[in-house]
Computed example of a mutant assay.
Amino acid sequence: MQFDPLSADDRAVASMLGMTLLLGTAVVGAAVVGAFVLDVGGSQETAPQVIWEWEETPDGLTVQHDGGDTVMPGEVRVVGDVDADLVGTTLDDQSLFGDEPISAGDEAAIDDSRLSGDTGTVALVWTSSDGSQSVVLSEYEYDLR
């Protein structure tokens, strides 16, 4: 029996490898197209990254934007031990910051008459525009005694 090198059939291996690569490429392509069509990644808003500096004053509290992202005042609200007029109001309400974007160096005062007592906790909470997410940006425990 003689071995004839021309009759060796390597074509089956090459076509199988080609078919596997083609199928893999098609599956990856379909997954990418499906992700775009179904919006799987979604475009979720992220909370602003801000450093807030709190200070107790003889008249109450002062909160200052000390660095980081610019914040839209309508997206952040005050919660905690504050009077009913201030709880849940956004930062553009009650003339805390006004309606301009809040950036580094901007500050606002919360008068002690608006706090519910000499001690308590006040927080700034960011909410996404569609209301699906909320994040506490800063929390401060005060003691005005």
Rank of each mutant, 00 (worst) to 15 (best):
D130S: 09
P58F: 05
S113D: 11
R11L: 14
D4Y: 14
L124A: 04
T70V: 15
G88D: 06
V63P: 01
S43H: 15
L86T: 03
V50H: 02
L23S: 09
M1E: 11
E107Y: 01
F36I: 13
F36T: 09
G80K: 03
S113R: 12
D59A: 12
V13G: 01
T70R: 03
D111C: 05
S103R: 09
A8N: 09
V50G: 02
A31V: 13
W52T: 05
V27C: 09
D9I: 12
A30Q: 13
G42V: 10
G80T: 08
D92H: 06
G88T: 08
E100C: 05
L61D: 01
G68A: 01
V87G: 03
V63Q: 00
R77S: 13
L6N: 10
T127A: 04
G74A: 12
T121V: 11
T57H: 02
I110D: 03
V76S: 00
V27T: 13
E75D: 11
S116H: 00
L86C: 03
L23Y: 06
G68M: 02
G88P: 06
G24I: 07
W126P: 00
V78Y: 00
G42N: 11
L38V: 11
P5R: 07
M16L: 13
S43W: 07
D112V: 08
F3Q: 09
A31S: 10
M72N: 09
T127R: 05
G18R: 12
G74K: 04
G98F: 03
V40T: 15
T57C: 04
E75A: 12
A109F: 06
D99R: 10
G34C: 10
F36Q: 15
A26T: 04
A14L: 13
W54M: 01
M19V: 07
D106A: 14
G117V: 09
T119S: 13
T20N: 09
E45A: 15
V79K: 02
L38F: 14
Q133W: 05
G74W: 07
S116Q: 08
D10I: 14
D106R: 15
G67N: 07
D85F: 12
P101S: 02
V13Q: 00
V50K: 02
Q49L: 15
L17V: 12
V32S: 12
A47N: 08
G74Y: 07
D111H: 08
P58W: 05
A12K: 12
A108K: 01
T25W: 06
G88A: 10
R77A: 04
G41D: 07
D10L: 15
T70Q: 04
A8W: 09
Q94W: 06
L124E: 03
E53Q: 14
S43P: 04
V63T: 00
R11K: 11
V82F: 01
A14H: 14
S134H: 05
D92R: 06
H65P: 00
S113H: 10
T90A: 14
A109P: 03
L124C: 06
P101T: 01
A30R: 13
S43A: 11
L38H: 13
G41C: 07
A104T: 15
P101N: 01
V28Q: 08
T90V: 15
S15C: 11
P5T: 05
Y140M: 02
T121Y: 10
A8Q: 10
L6F: 15
G98S: 09
T119F: 08
T89R: 15
S95V: 08
L21E: 09
A31C: 10
P58E: 06
